[in-house]
Design a binder for these strands. Structure first.
Lengths: 205, 205
DNA sequence: CTGACAGGCTAACGATGTTAGCCACTGCAG
DNA sequence: CTGCAGTGGCTAACATCGTTAGCCTGTCAG
């Protein structure tokens, strides 16, 4: 049913340490703070030394995007297959809720992983599809899955960027979206929880 | 019914020329090309001379965001109040379609205007609300309006960033979203076309 | 012992936004 | 007509960015 997470190729020890430091720096100080010199400082070395372990800043970002994608995938898979789901909550609502929770817990990482083009060529093959799979499982239909994912991303990114008016009750908005997609899933070709086998390729996160 | 567009404070002649050049540069060469030196070059002057007319790059961006917001607002207002709307297309579908069309026509401007935090303090007062008004008019309900807008933004930004799988039929996905929200609008407290008066404050674009 | 290599370092380059200070031209007051 | 202030250019320079080149030191295999 739900496929296995593709194994990410693991980095040499020191490179992994650099990525870990980069992640701390990113999440604690924000995107602009993710600088080769500051990253070096966090590690007690100078910026050029980082190049002994990684080919450049882009590689650091790719590694972080991979991590973000993988963790989001984990969270979403957990949500769809939850064995003791609170009775009454459909898979749609659970995936949406998990998406929001995960994104808000790592705002900078989420932004990094989801804005701009994905460096697909440098990513672990299959990871993107695997991370998007839960949407298909929850929606039962590829098109609806895509629509739901788009809604979720829009909600999250606009919330992170503080684009909503101050008094907004975002919980209600999420619920309204979930309801709309649940209705559509009912009216559409497939029903709530996944049918059986996926047919088409799926999108990421 | 639909309120008037707030008058943007207009810039001195030369400053307006700079903004115009910035816009051409942004849309033709992409966000990274929007550089003070390149902007100067496009105008036949040096970068520091720009500071005689505008306080800095941030001001250039703010002016561009204003323009993006205003034009999107125009397009959406046109869509909701369309007197000769193709019979059968609801306001919801028309606003969604207009949003997508407008965004895809000015991808870099859209991205600039919608990613990151809005510099609300520097914007023409009321512009943001005015630009978001059509969503409320189409959805008939503030919460649903917010959800629709989030869906639309998610769809557009993911399309611009080429995050969807290659073969995706995005027209279908938009239709699926429109359908879902139409169903919800029917089931919800208000019906398709706007009731009468707006009640709460609205979000942007 | 020697030599390769791993992993640090400094110096430097070409970008970026921005500031300081200089200079030419215009137009108005006296 | 003269003088002078404002307008709008300019160059030089600074700090910061990613990145490269080249050096040096320690470790460990042959």
């Amino acid at each position: 049913m739900t496929s296995a997470r593709p194994e990410p190729r693991q980095l040499p020890r020191r490179a992994a340490e650099i990525i870990a430091a980069a992640r701390v720096l990113l999440e604690s100080e924000g995107r602009d703070a993710l600088t080769m010199r500051r990253l070096g400082a966090a590690l007690g070395i100078r910026a050029p030394s980082i190049y002994k372990h990684l080919p450049g800043k882009h590689a650091v970002e790719v590694a972080l995007i991979e991590a973000g994608l993988a963790e989001m995938g984990e969270a979403l898979h957990r949500a769809v297959t939850d064995p003791q789901a609170p009775a009454g909550t459909g898979a749609v609502a659970r995936v949406l809720a998990a998406y929001r929770t995960e994104a808000l817990a790592r705002p900078s990482l989420y932004r990094l992983a989801t804005s701009g083009q994905l460096p697909r060529a440098e990513l672990t093959p299959g990871l993107e599809d695997w991370a998007g799979e839960p949407w298909l499982l929850a929606a039962g239909d590829p098109v609806l899955a895509q629509a739901m994912w788009s809604f979720a991303h829009g909600m999250v990114i606009l919330e992170l960027d503080q684009r909503y008016p101050d008094g907004s009750d975002l919980d209600r908005t999420w619920r309204a979206g979930a309801e709309a997609f649940n209705l559509a899933a009912g009216a559409g070709p497939a029903r709530d929880i996944a049918a059986k086998g996926p047919s088409g390729r799926e999108e990421d996160m």
